[in-house]
Nucleic acid binder design. Sequence first.
DNA 1: AGCTAGCCTGACTCATCAGTAAATATAACT
DNA 2: AGTTATATTTACTGATGAGTCAGGCTAGCT
Lengths: 226, 226
Amino acid sequence: MSDTPSAATRAPAPGRAAFDRDEQRRRKREAVLRVAASAFNRRGFANTSMDDVASVLGVSKPTLYQYFKSKQELLYACHQVAMDNGEAGLALAAAHDGTGLEKLIIYLRRYMEGIFGDLGNCPVLTDVDSLAPEDRANVVARRKRISAATKELIALGVADGSIGPCDPKLASLFALGVVNWIPAWYRDSGPNTPEEIMESFAALLISGLAAPASPKPTRKRAKSQA
Amino acid sequence: MSDTPSAATRAPAPGRAAFDRDEQRRRKREAVLRVAASAFNRRGFANTSMDDVASVLGVSKPTLYQYFKSKQELLYACHQVAMDNGEAGLALAAAHDGTGLEKLIIYLRRYMEGIFGDLGNCPVLTDVDSLAPEDRANVVARRKRISAATKELIALGVADGSIGPCDPKLASLFALGVVNWIPAWYRDSGPNTPEEIMESFAALLISGLAAPASPKPTRKRAKSQA
DNA sequence: AGCTAGCCTGACTCATCAGTAAATATAACT
DNA sequence: AGTTATATTTACTGATGAGTCAGGCTAGCT
């Protein structure tokens, strides 16, 4: 990694150099997180050793500890990214002026985008038990809030008539299940793009599987629209 | 060795004793599996030691090895139970004479029942990587078949008009996601019964979240499509 | 009683990692 | 050049946990 910084590190202020260093450090930290998250996702947290992560990055294990103080902190960072995505979606939904159903879909789309992103796809999500106790409490509380907000969004939709009568709690678990399970099967190399998946899932969430109208429509017209 | 040919033809006593022993053994094996599955589900496979399982049962670790040759075999058994449930559901669906949508719901209900049962709720499902290589191949292949059958069921429904136009592959992942995520949040002590959950989820799968007809619910009559 | 066979246990072995210490390389600035 | 701060490595430690072994207990048979 002979990163030639000759471009910007000429005569200028020592401040610049310090900035570059910080920037480098930030990038490296993110690289570690990205690789670790990916490995955790594929093989599971417990099945991934720090040596594994290090070897993918082409460095030695102690280097990782330069950027994360422990393996658990790495896991915690994964959780934070996922929760950030959830909260970002909620913020987007709150900002949108529309029905509860619209808000819900906006939220879930944003959340899914996060999941499809390199960093966000954490089946590690399930692995709350591997966190340090204090981190776990933190994560559980934050996820509870996100989950409650999802429920509220649905309750709102039921109230404004955009969502049919249902138990908002169960409906939120339904919706989040669909989304949270994505990392369990999605592969970059798969046949469907994230956009296709988000589109299909949003449609299925909204309208379900049942055919729109007639019970036995023999005439099958090619509907080229979703 | 010592295959007593007199077992069944002689006095009743020896046969009975042997039977009782086998029966005992079977029950104990099942108890081990149940406890292990429960522990794996709550704390994760890797976070559960054989000593943990043993102590819950009030026996010592080597005893477990009397019934399962390794921890991985225990995990494999969990997977098998889950897959048995899936296949049982598929068989039920195949036996039912109705639309593709009906078959799909019958299948998923049965599958969910398995998940709610003591033994079947395996978030361990995700942990394919902790299996022995040969077991893993087996599990992956079998799950692929189940997954393909689910897709076929949906394709059938699309063909017979009971299911709206959609990509059967994505729709199956959608449906299985909802179901497979259940173990991640369901607790016996929770407010909802398995029946309520199955009912709600089946309804949501079929009709989605959107309110049935008009934005202002007047009367749900024939829906005209634009 | 005495023998046999299966079941169970305490006390090990051995491998795998998370995390650390000390030494070495690299860059940044004077 | 020398000096300092940072980055990275090799080589360890210590803990945890899967799986084993040799002996002991108990139930059933003769």
